[in-house]
């Protein structure tokens, strides 16, 4: 499944990052890479953008970009 379908507090692992090169570059420099654990931390009033937590880093992503990130299915709640 893709990152934008996470429920709040759900944690899973990044399997793949697709999308335009500019986006992938940007994510890579922020330390968003394959194999990392990622968690949905907060949702804005309109459901977009959302805040994701990687370790202690919190990153705000729009859903348009989050669909490019594939994550593991068997994510469990906190």
């Amino acid at each position: 499944m893709t990152l934008d379908s996470l429920t709040r507090g759900q944690r899973c692992e990044i399997l793949n990052i697709a999308g335009p090169d500019a986006l992938r570059q940007r994510l890579a420099t922020l330390g968003v890479l394959r194999g990392q654990s990622i968690q949905l931390a907060a949702v804005s009033p309109w459901g977009n953008p959302r805040v994701y937590r990687l370790g202690r880093q919190q990153i705000c992503l729009r859903n348009e970009e989050a669909v490019y990130i594939t994550v593991t299915d068997q994510g469990n709640g906190r």
């Binding site: 990052i17 090169d21 992938r24 890579a28 330390g31 654990s37 370790g55 202690r56």
Partner: peptide, 29 residues
């Protein structure tokens, strides 16, 4: 993966090798 991702992964690999005694990822907010 793109070249950027491969190289960045390399950088992080190097950094993690620098101080394996501190595992930042496990310290929570």
């Amino acid at each position: 993966e793109t070249a950027t991702e491969l190289i960045t992964a390399g950088r992080y690999g190097y950094i993690h090798g620098l101080f394996h005694e501190i595992d930042e990822a496990h310290i929570d907010i």
